[in-house]
């Protein structure tokens, strides 16, 4: 099933991307070619197949609950153009 350019545009906006006409045209072609490629999966019987995970890394390692403050927090804040009094300032969140 092909995706329309409206649908692709909708997905782009969900990803917070506003596409130019040219970009949208490319994206529609790209996505539909891509989905065609993925349709190959339908040839396989995947009913009883487990999703992949690395056999050796089966277990999540657990970290000790010990405080280690990050030494460079100032450098983190210095990278933002929106910091005021150590807070990150952002524009209106609630859309009107």
């Amino acid at each position: 099933m092909k995706l329309s350019s409206e649908e692709v545009n909708e997905i782009a906006l969900e990803s917070r991307l506003v596409l130019s006409d040219q970009e949208l045209e490319n994206a529609v072609r790209y996505i539909n070619n891509f989905l065609d490629m993925l349709d190959r999966f339908k040839e396989l019987d995947l009913k009883d197949v487990e999703p992949f995970s690395f056999a050796e890394a089966l277990e999540c390692p657990l970290r000790e609950d010990a405080v280690k403050p990050f030494a460079n927090t100032r450098a983190i804040l210095d990278e933002s153009a929106h910091v005021e009094n150590s807070l990150f300032k952002v524009p209106r969140i609630m859309e009107e």
């Binding site: 970290r63 010990a66 405080v67 280690k68 403050p69 990050f70 927090t73 983190i76 804040l77 910091v83 009094n85 150590s86 807070l87 990150f88």
Partner: peptide
């Protein structure tokens, strides 16, 4: 998921890390 303190009685954005 990180070793930052959970103490909240601090200045903003001090108990932070990458």
């Amino acid at each position: 998921f990180c070793s930052c303190s959970t103490n909240t009685d601090v200045e903003p954005n001090t108990h932070v890390c990458p």
